[in-house]
């Protein structure tokens, strides 16, 4: 098993490249990917503007994570199909920290290619303070809670001051309360650093709360897109525009509206006897 292959996919920021000139931090044009006979991505076109938050939604296997990997240069992409101007930072669903390095070292590691050691660690400390873990510098990753580890992962992605932050379902393994805190944290960090964010998620409500633009992917293609112009503070689920968009997005994802409970008596409102013909569990998968 070849665990490591020499890194040939990294291309450093080039101010002369087309993506930079166009005002886009990332530009994807006609991007195809297939594994054997399976087409995972089919002729994808996607632009991410500077400072924009784009949520990429879709069912499992729709290709959204593959697209993120292309943008992160984790997989090779043919020249010209995927252009990213500036640095990328990535946070995954699992924190993926190096358990044998302290929290401080983990974050500083993202700066390994800048020469000054002291500067690396100072910057790492600063960023950890930003995510609220200034007290945990010398902790080992295995001593952290899931939410804390994910904050470290976020700090590690952010410390190099990326132009594009790629988040691959980073909050899906967290409990609901921690997730809400993380949403707030991401918005706070985004306001301060003004980077663009591409958020891959299953969670329609998360996308509605965070993103400027929602993009639904299906079968390796880009489907419908929604722009959300409401300020983030006004995006209560009961807000009519949000509720309508939510229904539309869920529809685009193939989720039907919840049917009325057939076991509930329409007149008395009481639950009848259970019969085991529950419709298959439908989530936003």
């Amino acid at each position: 098993m070849a665990l490591l292959t020499p890194d040939t996919t990294d291309s450093p920021a080039n101010p002369g490249d087309p993506a930079a000139r166009s005002g886009y931090v990332a530009r994807v044009r006609g991007h195809d990917r297939s594994f054997g006979d399976t087409h995972v991505l089919r002729s994808i076109d996607l632009d991410v503007q500077h400072g924009e938050i784009v949520a990429l939604l879709g069912r499992s296997g729709c290709g959204k994570s593959t697209l993120l990997r292309s943008l992160a240069h984790l997989d090779p992409a043919p020249a010209g199909e995927v252009e990213v101007s500036g640095r990328t930072g990535v946070a995954f669903q699992e924190p993926r920290l190096l358990n044998w390095r302290t929290v401080h070292q983990n974050v500083a590691l993202a700066l390994l290619n800048s020469p000054e050691r002291k500067k690396r660690f100072d910057l790492a400390e600063e960023t950890l303070a930003e995510v609220g873990l200034g007290e945990k510098l010398d902790a080992w990753p295995l001593q952290l809670s899931g939410g804390q580890a994910q904050r470290v992962s976020l700090a590690r992605a952010l410390v190099s001051n990326p132009a594009l932050l790629l988040l691959d379902e980073p909050f899906s393994a967290l409990d609901a309360l921690t997730r809400i805190e993380m949403h707030q944290l991401v918005i706070e960090l985004w306001r301060r650093h003004s980077m663009a964010i591409l958020l891959v998620t299953h969670d329609v409500d998360e996308a509605l709360a965070l993103a400027d633009r929602l993009v639904v992917m299906d079968g390796g293609r880009i489907g419908r897109t929604w722009e959300i112009t409401l300020p983030r503070s006004d995006r209560a689920p009961s807000q009519p525009d949000i509720a309508r968009t939510r229904a539309e997005v869920l529809g685009a994802l193939g989720v039907k509206p919840t049917p009325p409970n057939p076991r509930r008596d329409p007149v008395t409102g009481e639950l009848g006897p259970a019969h085991h013909s529950n419709p298959a569990k439908r989530g936003a998968a």
Partner: peptide, 17 residues
């Protein structure tokens, strides 16, 4: 036994081989 995902994260941090 090293997780591929950990190695991938290191690659995403732009670490060299």
């Amino acid at each position: 036994g090293i997780e591929r995902k950990t190695l991938e994260a290191a690659k995403a941090l732009h670490l060299t081989w």
